[in-house]
Amino acid sequence: MKRRKVSNLLGLAVLSSLMERPMHPYEVASVLRARGKEADMEIKIGSLYTVVGNLARHGFIEVAESGREGALPERTVYRITDAGREELLDWVRELISTPQAEPRRFKAGLSVFAVVGPDQAAALLRERLAALEQGTEALRAAAAEHAAFVPRLFLVEDEYEIAMREAEQAWVRALLEELTSGSFPGLAEWRAWETTGQAPAATPGPKDRGAPPAN
């Protein structure tokens, strides 16, 4: 992964917005919110101005015009530079083409979920599944609402998020079925561990089994 001068993903959104036309930071925020980008990143004016300042300092954007109307604060409009266009395109190419390991809280929980016992594990998975289903429906409704006035080109990340959530839901349902039907391997040993506190013996790995017998 390339080390970038401005790594905050809000910078990616700012550069993308300024590719369309020069804008004031408030206008950038309005455009991002209108397109539903708050689902992907937190859009705070303070953070936005910090990112804009960093992009300008590194030459990715520059002041297009600046002025003041009456007692209103000075209004600065920014435009993207050639260096900014190159950075944006390179950044997008990397994000789309290169898978990267990202910390996953759910995966971390699964790595140790044996400690809660099968019944509690099933209850927790049901709780997660309900939250996933509710969140996916809300995301699907928001995507449909945005699709009425935003081109699909700017909404494909919503399609991806919905697909990923649906895939996770399918996996959680399958695991729940194994736990509740009793088909999950080692379920009896897991229950015994919960009751007695005695962890089941580890299954020997290939290195522990020794070399295969000679023919």
Rank of each mutant, 00 (worst) to 15 (best):
A201N: 09
I61R: 05
A121Y: 02
V150H: 04
N215E: 14
G11P: 02
A83L: 13
G67H: 04
L110E: 10
K44G: 14
A142F: 06
G186E: 01
F149Y: 15
G59L: 14
V112S: 04
M19Y: 11
A71F: 06
I96H: 15
I43V: 13
R105M: 07
Y160I: 07
A174W: 03
T50L: 13
P103K: 10
F106R: 03
S111F: 08
L187P: 02
A142H: 12
Y26S: 13
S30W: 04
R191M: 03
H146T: 10
G67T: 01
L89R: 11
T76M: 10
P151L: 01
R126N: 09
I80R: 08
E102L: 01
G11R: 01
S47W: 10
S17I: 14
G197A: 00
N54C: 07
A214E: 15
T50K: 13
P103H: 15
V31P: 06
L15D: 04
D82I: 00
L9M: 05
R57M: 14
L176Y: 12
F113E: 02
E194K: 13
V63C: 05
R21M: 02
K5I: 09
L175K: 06
P213K: 11
D40Q: 15
K37N: 13
F154Q: 14
P99T: 06
